[in-house]
């Protein structure tokens, strides 16, 4: 079953002058087709301004289609009546952890979402505990969020979304402002939630290394999906990726360069182990 289904999804932004007349139209999403199977882990790559964040905002019904359709968990996002239900099905985590944490104690922050949904108090606390444990932050539940590291804050933000028990979480460049340790923490947590809790994960990122373990990858450019496939397929198309301002993991690039120098190496090498095996040094 597809939890997300976009058909020819279009989004146009209007630039207006001071009198409110339309000066120009910018097509941020241009007939995007996308299907995400429930329970899968997918990644969306694309350069700054390629339309990937606009797409993310559609999945959360923060934006609605100019044209085309988008169904999230069977609900049409164009229908204003579905807004709340969609936001409960698909939770969103943004780039900057400091912009998403509102309470002065970790557990209260995580409880904010379910409280807003009208969940009974006892159950809120159960959910808070469960979701903080699922991101490995339970031992900080009585701490102040502003003393946490960036990676920890981002995990609290994810717990806050998990407490609403969504079927799907969208992570919009969740690691862009984190250091390497923080980045690893967040990606690890996302994979654990996907595997253990069966949550569908949509990861939007600039870091090629982070998408290697995804089930499926979409690459966006100029509002369109320009490449799609599993990570091995995507990363075997080095030159094509580069033409969309993307890159490949360092090991993949090394393998590609070795192949160009005449060594017999298959495309789409993703790990050191794989490269060592195909190098076949006897």
């Amino acid at each position: 079953m597809n939890i997300i289904e976009a058909k020819k999804l279009v989004h146009e932004f209007f630039r207006r002058d001071e009198e409110g007349n339309i000066e120009g139209i910018q097509v941020a999403l241009n007939e995007v087709d996308l299907q995400v199977k429930a329970g899968s882990f997918i990644s969306i790559l694309g350069h700054n301004g390629s339309g990937k964040s606009t797409l993310a905002k559609h999945i959360n019904a923060l934006l609605t289609p100019t044209d085309g359709t988008l169904y999230v968990d069977g609900k049409d996002t164009s229908d204003a009546g579905n807004e709340l239900a969609i936001r409960q099905s698909a939770g969103m985590v943004f780039q900057n952890p400091d912009n998403q944490i509102i309470a002065s104690i970790v557990e209260e922050d995580v409880g904010f979402g379910p409280e807003n949904m009208g969940i009974p108090t006892d159950e809120i606390w159960e959910r808070v505990e469960r979701s903080l444990k699922s991101v490995g932050m339970w031992k900080y539940h009585t701490h102040s969020p502003n003393k946490l590291s960036g990676g920890q804050k981002q995990r609290v933000a994810i717990a806050g979304v998990m407490a609403m028990e969504p079927k799907c979480i969208i992570l919009d460049e969740p690691t862009a402002m984190l250091d390497p340790d923080g980045r690893k923490e967040v990606i690890k947590v996302a994979h654990e939630l996907n595997k253990k809790k069966g949550v569908t994960v949509i990861l939007i990122t600039h870091y090629m290394e982070e998408v290697v373990d995804s089930d499926y990858v979409y690459v966006m450019d100029k509002g369109k999906v320009v490449m799609e496939g599993d990570p091995r397929n995507i990363f075997s198309r080095v030159e094509e990726l580069k033409s969309h301002r993307m890159d490949v993991p360092q090991i993949t690039l090394l393998a590609h360069e070795l192949k160009k120098s005449g060594l017999d190496i298959p495309d789409g090498i993703l790990t050191r182990e794989e490269l060592m095996n195909v190098l076949n040094l006897g």
């Binding site: 350069h47 700054n48 780039q95 600039h206």
Partner: peptide
């Protein structure tokens, strides 16, 4: 280069 895409970083 924080927050830039790979080409932007390069």
């Amino acid at each position: 280069t924080a927050g830039l895409d790979p080409k932007g970083r390069d």
